[in-house]
């Protein structure tokens, strides 16, 4: 028997800036329903939003999967797309491969992955050029007070 959990899978469309942010918003609302600590929700929401925007900006299509159980919160951001050729560089603040068009819209400041790292308790990125990227983000609950 599996332990009680909530699972939410939301498809994300590449290059659709109108719907961008909706997945992160749904993740946030779900966590609010579950009564998760608001500071933690903020971290999850910011990290999820950045991961979602990475799919919208860089990939063809993808999904955000939220899983919540007694141990913690996991957000998976998985896409089919061009992948990240140099992960180390991508983790550097200010580095971005986003097009001028995307930058003109105010995105692609090169803060996505560094921001995600800052917000998560565990981060694993699995990427393959021209195949896609899988980002696993984990968050622990604050110690009971």
């Amino acid at each position: 028997m599996t332990e009680p959990h909530v699972r939410l899978e939301i498809p994300v469309e590449g290059n659709n800036f109108t719907a961008a942010g909706e997945a992160a918003s749904r993740v946030k609302k779900t966590l609010q329903k579950l009564g998760i600590d608001s500071t933690l929700i903020r971290r999850v929401a910011i990290a999820t939003y950045e991961a979602e925007m990475n799919i919208v900006i860089h990939a063809d299509a993808g999904k955000i999967v939220l899983q919540v159980d007694a141990d913690g919160i996991t957000v998976l951001a998985e896409d089919r797309g061009k992948g990240i050729p140099d992960l180390e560089k991508a983790m550097t603040a200010g580095f971005s491969t986003a097009s001028d068009r995307v930058r003109a819209m105010g995105f692609g400041a090169g803060m996505g992955l560094p921001n995600i790292k800052k917000c998560t308790d565990y981060l694993a990125i699995d990427t393959e050029v021209n195949i896609g990227t899988k980002v696993v983000m984990k968050f622990n609950y604050p110690a009971a007070t």
């Binding site: 009680p4 959990h5 909530v6 609302k29 609010q32 329903k33 579950l34 009564g35 998760i36 608001s38 919540v68 159980d69 007694a70």
Partner: peptide, 13 residues
């Protein structure tokens, strides 16, 4: 917050 369904996580889930 009026959003949470329950103060207990397991019950909220």
């Amino acid at each position: 917050s009026v959003l949470r369904l329950d103060r207990d996580l397991a019950k909220a889930i």
